[in-house]
């Protein structure tokens, strides 16, 4: 499904939700639960906390759905709302570094290679050490696999600004990840 189709579907789901069809909102939750959850993972200490934060974001989005300007993309609005929520929470809760056992628990999936899980956790931890300005550009580009123009639109920056952020973020992450690997 291409982007305009997605946008049309989102707009329809929003309309139906606002007209009292609650289940239509579940469609939006299922569609965007991954990106919102992964965003919260970058601002939290573990999967459980990220899951709670992602739920909070969707509940708040539902409550404020009537104020959503339907001329904008729904995901941009949802992402901004979730990012604000995550930042507020980060300000309140002093972030603690992940302990090794947390890392082992995080992303623990019986179906996955334990070594790959550990690598993923290390990468996520390095991403957390980046400024959100850069981490989010990188995350949207690679984790969410969004084209650069969509990254720019979501972050509210120009195309060249988004490109610059992704480029610099990748460079910074490379240094951070390399340092962690040496420890």
């Amino acid at each position: 499904m291409d982007k305009p189709d997605n946008d049309r579907d989102d707009a329809m789901a929003v309309e139906r939700t606002l007209s009292g069809e609650r289940e239509a909102f579940a469609v939006l939750v299922r569609r965007y639960q991954g990106p919102v959850y992964r965003l919260m993972l970058r601002f939290s200490r573990d999967e459980h906390e990220a899951c709670e934060m992602a739920q909070d974001a969707f509940v708040r989005a539902y409550e404020r759905l009537a104020s959503y300007d339907q001329r904008r993309r729904f995901f941009t609005w949802l992402y901004t709302l979730a990012l604000n929520l995550a930042r507020d929470r980060a300000r309140r809760v002093a972030r603690e570094p992940l302990y090794r056992q947390d890392l082992d628990m995080t992303l623990a999936d019986p179906g996955r290679d334990p070594l790959a899980s550990l690598e993923a956790a290390r990468l996520l931890d390095a991403l957390r050490d980046l400024s959100p300005k850069y981490a989010e550009a990188l995350a949207l580009r690679y984790i969410e696999d969004m084209p650069l123009d969509a990254v720019a639109e979501t972050l509210g920056v120009s195309m060249s600004g988004a490109k610059m952020r992704v480029h610099r973020a990748l460079h910074m992450l490379r240094e951070l990840y390399g340092k962690e690997g040496k420890q």
């Binding site: 992602a54 990748l170 690997g181």
Partner: peptide, 20 residues
């Protein structure tokens, strides 16, 4: 000591599989 940018990008893409 340091992964290449392509390796990092691939690693990040794998994080996209995480789901609640």
């Amino acid at each position: 000591t340091e992964p290449s940018k392509d390796e990092l990008a691939s690693g990040l893409r794998r994080l996209g599989a995480m789901d609640p």
